[in-house]
Design a protein around this nucleic acid. Sequence first.
DNA 1: TTAATTATGATTAAATTTGATCGAATTAAC
DNA 2: GTTAATTCGATCAAATTTAATCATAATTAA
Lengths: 250, 250
Amino acid sequence: MTFQKRAHKILELLETYGEVEIRQLATKIGVSEVTVRRDLTSMAANGLLYRTHGGAMKISDVIKPVSFANKAEVNLKAKDAICKRAAEDIAEGDVIFIDCGSTAFRLCQFIKNKNIKVITNSLPIVNELQHSAVTINLIGGEVDASRQAIHGTMALEHISRYHADKAFLGVDGITAEGLYAGSEYEAANTLAMAAQTNCTYMLCDASKIGKTSYLKFNNLSIVDILVTNYNGPELNKFQSKGISLSPVTV
Amino acid sequence: MTFQKRAHKILELLETYGEVEIRQLATKIGVSEVTVRRDLTSMAANGLLYRTHGGAMKISDVIKPVSFANKAEVNLKAKDAICKRAAEDIAEGDVIFIDCGSTAFRLCQFIKNKNIKVITNSLPIVNELQHSAVTINLIGGEVDASRQAIHGTMALEHISRYHADKAFLGVDGITAEGLYAGSEYEAANTLAMAAQTNCTYMLCDASKIGKTSYLKFNNLSIVDILVTNYNGPELNKFQSKGISLSPVTV
DNA sequence: TTAATTATGATTAAATTTGATCGAATTAAC
DNA sequence: GTTAATTCGATCAAATTTAATCATAATTAA
């Protein structure tokens, strides 16, 4: 029995039952479980099925995640502590930028009752602050459903029209060499906001410190204050680059 | 029972009851409460549900309270009929403006599967079209929580940057003398969109015809096509002013 | 036929999944 | 506000599944 014949058989069974188990396939096809496992791995790599622990499922039966809005975040405690610390620096009457990252989102809860103006490209933040004391300016442009945010040329131009006292931004990673983002959009947005701000706060839980990512988009010069729960040797390097530290404990 | 199967079951129960408890899920699925808790945490992380203390809720009940507000609308049947008629004129590839009124919102259901670009200042429309075939361009500016829309100088300027094939707009009232709006913002928005469009559709259920309101903001010259379920003597006057009629029956 | 490549099966260490337990955190009751 | 009852998150252990390694069988090319 060749691989092609087995693959055909597996897809047939998947079509009938919606899901299959490795043991069941091994007996039904008459090969070892190792071979079935290999077949499933290769078929999954080609997008023919969805691999589960102990078997496989039809692709169409797999549930796709819909929105990141209410994401049960990792490092929530750290992020909340960081945002609480950052919020202490926000004064009544301030105009602030907030980016669309998951860390900055946690800032909302601490600023709901402040009389400030928030400029953001994040839809969840708009939802969150909608009926609060905060005045919201939503950045216009293309809607990115997966990131629940606005981006594009128009968004950058929108940002360039405004000027804020402070910007509260996140990144995918930060090292002494510079800032790292997960996409061009995030990078462009971060740079645009930082350019129109008196004081840029970088909100980074410990997992971001020393981490590199897809795109290195700038050196550290745009960062004024680093708020983090990280407490290690890297911090000195940041300080020597002129960044003020605002350490928090979780 | 794999994680994927349990996830299916949980979403199914969630769909039926709107909310679920951990204990109930554990017995129903036949796994420990610890496992259910883990499943819910992971599903919440993927945005599949909203985690509560002791269970979970459907995400749509939590995240989209805005679009639900429009359910208790008056003249829903008429509005739907009007929007269905209007949607027939929208071709693949079209770029269209949609304003933030309650009538135009009903257009969403009829365009979800079209490959078009929608430019709007309405937050409920963004929510509604977020995971559809439609590309969304959200107009930036001040967020008006009560109207669930964006307005202001920046919004008008944003609109002026774009050009659409068609605009689908509503008004507070329309007579042979002109168009009436409930606020300066609505009026400015309507004018801005109409100015950047080849063909302006006015969506008006019968209650708007012949009605005047707070602010008369323009004559009828900006209107190209009037879609309405109204069927009375006023219609001739509109026609004599150069407006095409697109009548619907409820 | 022989050498080389590929596919299969067995074995074992690593990774996942699940359930149990317990202190911490949250909610409800008073 | 304080206390009691749940619920949560973290950690550990057991069971299962997986990936990696290696040896053997089958297939192919020279």
